[in-house]
Design a protein around this nucleic acid. Structure first.
Lengths: 155, 155
DNA sequence: AAGAAATAATCAGTGTGCTGATTAATTGAA
DNA sequence: TTCAATTAATCAGCACACTGATTATTTCTT
């Protein structure tokens, strides 16, 4: 009888939280555009003309995943890919008018959904919620991308 | 420029948290067994002989996903599927000795990983972290499985 | 200028996660 | 008791997410 209580396992909680969010997104925001897709649209509204890799960095998606997400958005006519004339390896990404419209529409609905999602928490608790999750995520990310010591002894 | 700050979007934060956890799991716990797979092993340690659907319910995975996870665990010889003689629709699931050993080994490593993952938070903050995430997840789940009003007007 | 190193994107392979449709078995009701 | 409803599992299809390998292009070095 060595079973463990998963409700104190942050990984399990993170997965449940994402599931809950996924459900709410589907009912309150969009069934076509997913949350990661919206994040990509949003990144390109903020910085039009980014390349694929950088968009991935902005929204936290790896090279393979970002490629698929972008290919879907492109297939639906929400963004354009153009070869960078300065650097033939890159594709420059830019929202279409349709992409802009979609982003605008979803921004409103997303705000409404976030309100519903966070409604069980008071304003102070919401701030705590953001802060705690961010600190844990940042720290874990830091563990994997260790800061190079100055005057490195690598050589 | 109507771009939004994703760091105040709980869905985005949930995704980042899960990614961070995934990375740490891979380096500190196992590259073969995933966190959902461990959750299934754990459920079957607690309650041997459960059927597939119920295991899914215990760990929070839908019918399709739990089927795939179980088929992988079964392929690796970590659990056995046997038709329920009482109800021919069900398969009863039970860990093999190898499955038991694996669960025991990963339990130790998982505990270590959780410590590292939560290290940036004080003990009080950790308690807060669990409580806030759980409340938000539970509330969102409740939205999707609405409690049938008593003396329902369904008919 | 030529070759080596680095970089952006793609591809192959695996795993999680969801919905809607189907199949097989059981249960419930006329 | 037979037929309808329910239920467990599977299947098809889509989307996210990661790693390792490959390809094309650029940059750096000599």
């Amino acid at each position: 009888m060595a079973a463990v209580d998963l409700s104190t396992h942050p990984g399990h909680l993170a997965r449940r939280l994402q599931q809950a969010h996924y459900l709410l997104w589907n009912t309150m925001v969009s069934e076509e555009i997913t949350s990661p897709q919206f994040a990509v649209l949003n990144a390109l509204v903020a910085e039009p003309g980014l390349d694929q890799r950088t968009v991935g960095e902005r929204v936290g998606l790896d090279r393979s995943t970002i490629a698929e997400v972008i290919s879907r958005l492109s297939r639906r006519g929400l963004l354009d890919k153009v070869r960078d004339p300065q650097d033939g390896r890159r594709f420059l990404l830019r929202l279409t008018d349709e992409g802009m419209r979609t982003h605008r529409k979803l921004t409103v609905r997303t705000a409404r959904m976030n309100q519903v999602f966070l409604a069980p928490l008071s304003a102070e608790e919401q701030a705590m919620f953001f802060d705690l999750i961010q600190r844990v995520s940042d720290a874990a990310e830091g563990l994997r991308n260790p800061v190079e010591p100055l005057a490195s002894s690598k050589a």
